[in-house]
């Protein structure tokens, strides 16, 4: 087991190193000079040169790569070209919006999807099942930015229950923050809940056909008892896998919803960074996300290996 963990750790470091080279290389070839962008059309050449020097854009590619990687190893992600504050500060501030929003959306989608999926599976082929299947199909097909605008039209402009967007910050109070994130979370949750509900349904149907379910019924459990104590647990495994994928997607992938509700989230930070050629922000944030995904995969791999001894031997 320790050998396996060590082997996986080495491959993790190799992945990170490869990712850092790819990210740096891609950013390097993006056309557009950050200093020229910041100083605009009237800037003199010496002012642009002075700013380039100030931002640390001068010097060879290799030297700049190693200074970037070296900085990250000691926790220094650099200073944003445009905002002039440390990138880590920006990321922490954005996570205060993105992380709760992601968790909120996932909580909503799970809370809706699991009972709905259960209901559909229990009444397979019935009207309720067809109704749920049609509704979830619609939930996946509807673009979530359009659904978001619809929510704003109805609940912000029409009824005035919620603001049209923005985030007041957690210091304005817990419930104020939750309220500001509610419409975005609902908009994000709709497609995720639809996907989850369909997976829940098919996964449960598959489990219901298994031998051990028949055994459970045979030893005298009612249909409901058998599903709750034996079926559900097994049916949830694929659901959890999808949930994990959705989490990392939502963390930085909520950018369109962040735009509709003008939320200061992680997705918009990267997007703005690209537009404004704030390359250090793009590099460092993308690298952090890569790190998070690789770490999660590593932990999941270790967990699988702990559960399933065959994996340990197969290397």
């Amino acid at each position: 087991m320790i050998g396996y963990a060590f082997f996986r750790l080495v491959s993790l470091c190799a992945s990170l190193a490869a990712a850092s080279i790819v990210i740096f290389g891609v950013i390097e070839v993006i056309p557009g000079d950050p200093a020229a962008f910041m100083l605009g059309v009237s800037a003199t050449d010496d002012a642009v040169a002075a700013l380039r020097a100030e931002l640390g854009l001068e010097g060879g590619v290799t030297a700049r790569y190693f200074s970037w990687v070296g900085g990250m190893l000691v926790g220094d992600f650099g200073t944003s070209y445009t905002y002039r504050v440390p990138v880590s500060e920006l990321v922490l501030a954005r996570l205060q919006v993105s992380l709760p929003l992601t968790l909120y959306a996932l909580a909503l989608s799970t809370a809706v999807a699991i009972p709905v999926g259960l209901a559909a599976a229990a009444r397979r082929g019935g009207t309720a099942d067809y109704g749920i299947m049609a509704a979830t199909q619609l939930g996946i097909a509807v673009p979530n930015f359009w659904f978001a605008m619809l929510l704003v039209l109805v609940f912000s402009i029409g009824l005035g229950w919620f603001g049209a967007g923005g985030f007041p910050g957690w210091e304005a109070g817990f419930w104020t923050g939750v309220k500001a994130l509610t419409l975005p979370a609902v908009a994000l949750a709709l497609p995720q809940a639809s996907i989850l509900a369909r997976i829940m349904r098919s996964s449960l149907l598959e489990v219901l056909g298994q031998d051990y379910m028949r055994t459970a019924r045979a030893k005298g459990l009612s249909g409901r008892q058998a599903v709750v104590s034996h079926g559900l647990r097994n049916a949830l495994i694929p659901v959890m896998t999808i949930l994990g994928l959705q989490f990392s997607f939502l963390l930085a992938g909520a950018i369109i919803i962040e735009n509709v509700f003008f939320l200061p989230g992680l997705g918009r930070l990267i997007f703005q960074g690209i537009i404004q050629r704030d390359l250090i922000v793009v590099e460092s944030v993308v690298m952090l996300l890569v790190f998070a995904v690789i770490m999660v995969t590593y932990l999941v791999d270790l967990t699988y290996a702990a559960i399933d001894p065959r994996l340990r031997r197969s290397i």
Partner: peptide, 9 residues
């Protein structure tokens, strides 16, 4: 579109 909504709301 968000700007429109923000002013309207």
């Amino acid at each position: 579109t968000a700007a429109f909504a923000a002013v309207m709301a």
